[in-house]
């Protein structure tokens, strides 16, 4: 059997998951210029919200997904309102914000573990009936196709938002120079709050879809975040296109790398790629 077609499908699936995380991360970074590590745990919030509403309470799955995405968005917005905004007002450096986000990450992760235990859980026990599609000689499941379509739709949506709306114009102005944006009358804190809501909602969706594809656990955020951050950095941090391209490049290198060598090297390869980019092309593929 030739494994190349399946390998390519695997690359696309992995790349799509990383892209989903990188999209929200880049959006937030672009506006705030700080590494929001709590982004990872927001994905877990989305996943666990769906677990609670759909599996524990038995609500309609689609309704639960919508609630999960909204809750993740609200959680991100809340973090900004109650943690990052007061710090920004005190003119805290990005390093302080980074540490604060690490604290938020750990605290929320611990709360999830207390509420739901640390056990690995899966969102859909009915995947046995999940439809499987064949593309050339590779297979892809319905969930994975949804992930791929979500990436395409969200990328397009973000591009439209950033380049075709007044809101987007303000975000880009802020991204270029926050001080000047303030001077021309842009309410930067309000914009950042909204950006946090949108970016976190995307992260929540990522967590939910990963939950349907494989499963959820309180510590899932770190793995997702790291891969998302690598994708952002190699693509060009803060850049929407860059994050998506970086994600697929990461998926490609990772899965292609273990074609001929043993699978446990996957993470080693991913992080080696990060280091190579940091050394030789620190601004990423999409050199701004």
């Amino acid at each position: 059997m030739d494994i190349l077609p399946q390998l390519i499908v695997n690359i696309i699936i992995a790349g799509a998951i990383y892209a989903l995380v990188a999209l929200g991360f880049n959006l937030i970074y672009g506006a705030t210029k700080f590494f929001n590590l709590a982004h990872g745990v927001i994905a877990a919030v989305g996943g666990y919200a769906v677990f609670y509403f759909a599996k524990t309470l038995g609500w309609n799955v689609y309704l639960a997904v919508i609630i999960g995405v909204l809750l993740a968005g609200i959680a991100g917005y809340g973090l900004d309102k109650f943690v990052y905004l007061p710090l920004r007002k005190r003119k805290a450096s990005n390093m302080v914000l980074l540490v604060a986000s690490l604290g938020a990450f750990t605290a929320i992760q611990a709360v999830i573990a207390i509420l739901f235990t640390s056990q690995f859980k899966t969102l859909s026990y009915s995947v046995g009936t999940q439809r499987i599609f064949e593309i050339f000689d590779g297979v892809i499941t319905q969930t994975q196709l949804i992930i791929l379509m979500s990436v395409a739709l969200i990328t397009a949506g973000l591009i439209l938002l950033l380049y075709k709306t007044r809101f987007g114009k303000a975000v880009r102005a802020m991204s270029d120079d926050e001080e000047v944006a303030k001077i021309v009358g842009i309410n930067t804190n309000r914009i950042i709050g909204r950006i946090f809501f949108i970016g976190s909602a995307i992260a929540g969706l990522a967590g939910i879809l990963v939950g349907f594809d494989t499963g959820i656990e309180p510590t899932m955020g770190l793995g997702l975040l790291l891969k998302g951050v690598i994708a952002s950095i190699i693509g060009g941090v803060g850049n929407i296109y860059g994050g998506v391209m970086g994600a697929f490049l990461l998926g490609f290198v990772e899965n292609f790398g273990i074609w001929k060598i043993s699978g446990e090297w996957k993470d080693a390869i991913a992080f080696a790629l990060l280091i190579v980019f940091l050394l030789f092309r620190p601004k990423g593929i999409m050199n701004k």
């Binding site: 494989t214 899965n255 446990e264």
Partner: peptide
């Protein structure tokens, strides 16, 4: 082949 303890994407290993 081995997988790391937190690995959840085993597709390429299973494909191989």
């Amino acid at each position: 082949e081995g997988v790391l303890q937190d690995a959840t994407d085993l597709r390429t290993q299973i494909t191989k």
